[in-house]
Design a protein around this nucleic acid. Structure first.
Length: 690
DNA sequence: GCACCTCGAGTTCA
DNA sequence: CTCGAGGTGC
């Protein structure tokens, strides 16, 4: 009650009208109290007590008062998070106690070695040494000094002995209390922690920097470290940095006997401590903790690169002591990094089915999250220039969506002058024809339709699973058939004889007959597949579906005019143009003739949609690995019941089918509050409708 | 003319 | 998965 009244009064007061110094003094102290309390609840407890708007109003009131009576400004005032600009560089400071780094363990054998040494040095059995496991936050290590409960100074780790004084910048971090909660703390308290940037803040900053044409940060750690070292701490204030505290310099005045209790003490005095800690005894329990967080850590708001294992009791820690670099009582277990640095050995150019020239970086092979990466696409000329990747460069590589290798950036500091810039070729690297870059497009294209690379890719696409689905006719076989000049285009596939295929290496009786059967079976695939297989520009599987449901057969479609096509929903001028052009080209018409002569199905079938269609008009998105059916089967089922499957989640999506290891689409679904269903749910929904 | 939603095309590795 | 580009609707 009392509380609320004070808050109401503070919100209602127009401090610009306060003239009396005494009034101002009591108001400022109340405002400070309220604001600092809010910060504590907002950031530490995650339970805000006042709204953002009210917070802003209180801040403004306080600023006005402090403007009028500058002598009322104290260093624990929330307005002092942004103070005067720092002149010149950072001062260096010596740490009260050396900030050691931890000994790393990269696998369980190394972890066991560490544990065994601890047991041996202490002369204690495994079950008498308790450890504390903590997440290792991937940020920038700092030391904070509190004097009489007030934030006095803070510094970077530096080399462990001497760091840089970044007090001003640290003051901008709202989770660092300017004043500690409890009065009975020792007169001088030095605590250690990790300043980090939340993943979503990192994304935001990078997006902004990209818009402004600035170089983007490679990862949240770099961004955090960079932000902390901003000379202008107003820049630091804009980045919403955060902190977790995990330790203190040994202090005789603290009568705390172990790490676990220290962490809860830190929490009690208002410092932010990571909640994901546990005590563990013996290898198995530690391993449990490590495994528990191996995947879950990805869902956290911050990046972690491993876990820290510390002997719990300080008395035991002291007995173990330290080497010149590391304490002997702690180790860091590092998860295999999901980012690696490697060297660009070469940059090559791929020619795609449509003639697009795509630069690809050939990398010195590195292992990243479970697989060896040796190539990464550079997408196009613009991307290549933006990332400024040169042959010989060291680059930072990760896997987008756990699968696709991607170069994040080149490490310019590691250049030695021998790197070579790469220019996109002016001629097709495969056939030597001219290339063009159409106005307004990013792609560079080979202009020759007869380009062997394109011919090859077109045939591979034709036979691929989503197209004509000819099992046994993959890239390797297509290449051999082309080389032997047994086929020249996709229609030739239907004229292959037993003897033709048998000449290809590794094709014996059984495999040859299988392929012939697969080719035969493909002749009766629906028209939509054939349209997609033909590779008309802008005609993917969806537009192929649209076309096949608007025309009874391929011949009718060939006859269709630009105007006819443009009238169809979802077919605009560009697509209509592309289709009519395609059917005017001799080369294509010849292929179509050959397909017809081979009796490939040209007719479209009306899809029989269940009468009691359960999902009429409903839009589905699939994510994750499905177990009881494939994605294609799920799609077919949904379409049979009148639903549609699209590739990305938007607010129009009705349901998201979630399989195992769902991707970012599940996050999107949550964001838009879209109903998610499991495979079981889908089955039930169908059954109840049959 | 712009915002928003989809689609198309290219890519990697086990 | 990501990017760029096409189509639709305001």
């Amino acid at each position: 009650m009392e509380e609320n009244k004070i808050l109401e009064k503070l919100l209602a007061t127009d401090t610009s009208k306060v003239a009396d110094r005494k009034d101002a003094q009591s108001l400022t102290s109340e405002l400070k109290e309220e604001l600092n309390k809010h910060n504590y609840y907002y950031y530490i407890k995650d339970a805000p007590i006042i709204s953002d708007a009210d917070y802003d109003r209180l801040m403004k009131n306080l600023q006005i008062l402090e403007g009028k009576f500058p002598d009322l400004i104290t260093d624990d005032s929330p307005t002092q998070r942004i103070g005067a600009t720092l002149e010149g560089g950072f001062k260096t400071v010596e740490h009260g106690e050396k900030m050691l780094s931890l000994q790393d363990a990269f696998n369980y054998d190394e972890l066991k070695d560490f544990l065994e040494r601890v047991y041996k040095d202490l002369g204690l059995p495994e079950d008498e040494v308790e450890f504390v496991c903590e997440l290792k936050i991937d940020g920038s290590a700092v030391a904070l000094v509190y004097e009489d409960g007030r934030f006095a100074s803070g510094a970077t780790r530096g080399d462990g002995i001497i760091g840089e004084d970044i007090t001003q910048n640290l003051r901008t971090i709202k989770t660092i209390p300017l004043k500690l909660l409890k009065p009975q703390i020792p007169p001088r308290l030095e605590v250690r922690g990790e300043v980090y940037l939340a993943k979503d803040e990192f994304e935001k900053i990078n997006m902004q920097r990209e818009e402004e044409g600035l170089a983007t940060f490679a990862n949240p750690r770099n961004a955090a470290a960079g932000s902390l070292r901003q000379i202008d701490h107003k820049m630091t204030a804009q980045r919403k940095l955060n902190i977790f505290l995990y330790g203190a310099a040994t202090n005789p005045n603290l009568s705390i006997e172990n790490q676990f209790k220290l962490l809860s003490f830190l929490k009690d005095i208002g410092l932010r401590v990571n909640p994901n800690i546990r005590k563990a005894t013996g290898f198995e329990q530690i391993k449990e903790y490590i495994e528990n967080w191996r995947d879950r850590r990805r869902d956290l708001q911050y990046e972690t690169d491993g876990i820290v294992i510390k002997v719990n009791k300080f008395a035991l820690q002291q007995r173990l002591g330290q080497t010149s670099k590391n304490p002997r009582w702690a180790a860091a277990f590092k998860y295999p990094p999901e980012q690696q640095t490697t060297k660009v050995l070469d940059i090559t150019v791929n020619v795609g089915r449509t003639g697009t020239l795509t630069p690809v970086a050939v990398l010195q092979p590195v292992r990243i999250s479970g697989s060896t990466v040796s190539h990464a696409t550079l997408h196009n000329e613009d991307e290549l220039n933006r990332k400024d990747v040169r042959i010989g460069d060291w680059v930072l590589v990760h896997k987008a969506g756990e699968i696709i290798p991607e170069i994040i950036m080149s490490i310019k500091e590691r250049r030695n002058g021998t790197e070579r810039e790469f220019k996109m070729p002016a001629r097709c690297p495969v056939c030597g024809s001219d290339v063009e870059r159409p106005e307004g497009e990013v792609a560079i294209r080979c202009t020759s339709l007869a380009c062997p690379a394109q011919q090859f890719e077109r045939i591979v696409h034709f036979a691929s699973k989503p197209a004509m689905d000819i099992d046994g006719l993959g890239p390797a076989v297509v290449e051999k058939l082309l080389n032997k000049k047994i086929i020249k285009d996709s229609a030739d596939i239907y004229y292959l004889k037993y003897e033709d295929i048998a000449t290809v290496e590794n094709f014996k009786e059984k495999s040859t007959n299988n392929l012939l059967d697969a080719i035969d079976a493909s002749k009766s695939k629906p028209l939509a597949r054939l349209l997609f297989a033909m590779g008309i520009r802008f005609v993917g599987s969806h537009i192929a579906d649209v076309l096949s449901s608007n025309y009874e057969n391929l011949d009718d479609l060939i006859q269709a005019s630009f105007e006819d096509l443009s009238k169809i929903y979802e077919i605009g001028p560009r697509i209509a143009e592309s289709i009519t052009t395609f059917f005017k080209q001799d080369q294509n018409l010849k292929i179509i003739e050959k397909l017809k002569a081979a009796k490939v199905n040209f007719g479209s079938e009306i899809k029989n949609i269940s009468k009691k269609a359960a999902f009429t008009g409903k839009i589905f998105v699939l994510t994750g690995k499905l177990s009881s059916f494939t994605r294609d089967e799920a799609k077919e089922i949904i379409e049979k019941f009148g639903g549609r499957v699209v590739s990305s989640v938007s607010k129009n999506t009705d349901m998201v089918l979630v399989g195992e290891d769902p991707g970012s689409k599940l996050d999107d679904a949550k964001k838009y509050e879209i109903k998610t269903i499991s495979e079981e749910d889908l089955k039930k929904m169908i059954e109840s409708n049959d």
